[in-house]
């Protein structure tokens, strides 16, 4: 059961980094209740897309539009995007020395969900419950965020943040990379906790295995800054069997065709 109105609309999006065009016209539409997977070879622009969605200052949007629940997202600062319900689980979470997870999350939850959500008893109960779901013990909550964490712990911490912020639209940028089988299951469990008819999910990944835990409704293949192919879950199996060349060749040929 999905909402008819798209949660996230990406329309012919073009973006560059340091003057180099990376996204060359990406279009996507994600509705509430849908899980989309975005796959593609290295350098195809997957992470650029996630960073552009979140408003990273290193990326310049040169064309197209992005709307979240119908609102133009591009003029908004990153914090305003987060407050409107966008969440990006980043590929490489940064450490914030000296700021504990509790302190950090309290500030973030207050900013996104309002002061009511940070009343001590309510907030801590919710935080502990979500942390337990992700096998993050109490000591993690009192440690500086991501400092000295393993790769898997950092990814779980991203999911903890996601659960606490209760976003409407989630982008997971290679959240599965570097995770062992058990950690992957834990991360998937966290995302499943959030998924519902109101929530849209975009999973950026190289691998099939996270998609076995979080089966996508739609799969897109990004090649050279464009969606080269979209389809159902069968596309994932096809990629596993045939690699990217069969997608890349027609896409490259299409790109070189005159308008």
């Amino acid at each position: 059961m999905t909402d008819a109105r798209p949660l996230l609309e990406v329309e012919n999006l073009e973006a560059s980094v340091a003057g180099k065009p990376i996204l060359k016209g990406v279009s996507l539409s994600i509705r509430g209740g849908e899980v989309h997977a975005l796959m593609g070879p290295n350098g195809s622009g997957k992470s650029t897309l996630s960073n552009v969605l979140m408003g990273h200052p290193d990326y310049e949007v040169t064309g197209g539009a992005v709307r979240l629940l119908g609102e133009d997202l591009l003029p908004l600062a990153p914090e305003e995007r987060a407050r409107r319900g966008l969440f990006l689980a980043v590929q490489y979470p940064v450490a914030i020395p000296g700021v504990t997870t509790v302190q950090f999350l309290k500030a973030c939850v207050e900013a996104v969900r309002g002061r009511e959500a940070t009343k001590a008893a309510v907030f801590l109960r919710e935080l502990r419950e979500n942390a337990r779901l992700l096998d993050l013990g109490e000591p993690f909550l009192n440690r500086p965020i991501n400092e000295g964490f393993s790769g898997g712990e950092k990814k779980r911490m991203e999911i903890l943040q996601m659960l606490m912020l209760k976003p409407r639209m989630v982008v997971l940028d290679e959240t599965d990379s570097g995770l062992d089988i058990d950690a992957l299951k834990i991360v998937a469990r966290g995302v499943q906790r959030l998924i519902g008819p109101e929530i849209g999910v975009l999973i950026i990944t190289h691998y099939e295995r996270i998609l076995t835990h979080l089966p996508p409704d739609h799969v897109h293949i990004l090649v050279d800054g464009r969606i080269a192919r979209s389809g159902g879950p069968e596309l994932v199996r096809e990629l596993e069997e045939r690699g990217y060349d069969w997608v890349r060749e027609p896409a490259t040929a299409a790109a070189s065709e005159p308008d």
Partner: peptide, 24 residues
């Protein structure tokens, strides 16, 4: 940027980083 992407306005993000810098 990481802190801003979690909903914190830039001045709050900067203050939190400074507080963290001195915390040890």
């Amino acid at each position: 940027h990481y802190l801003r992407s979690r909903g914190l306005p830039e001045p709050v993000a900067r203050r939190l980083l400074l507080e963290g810098f001195f915390e040890d």
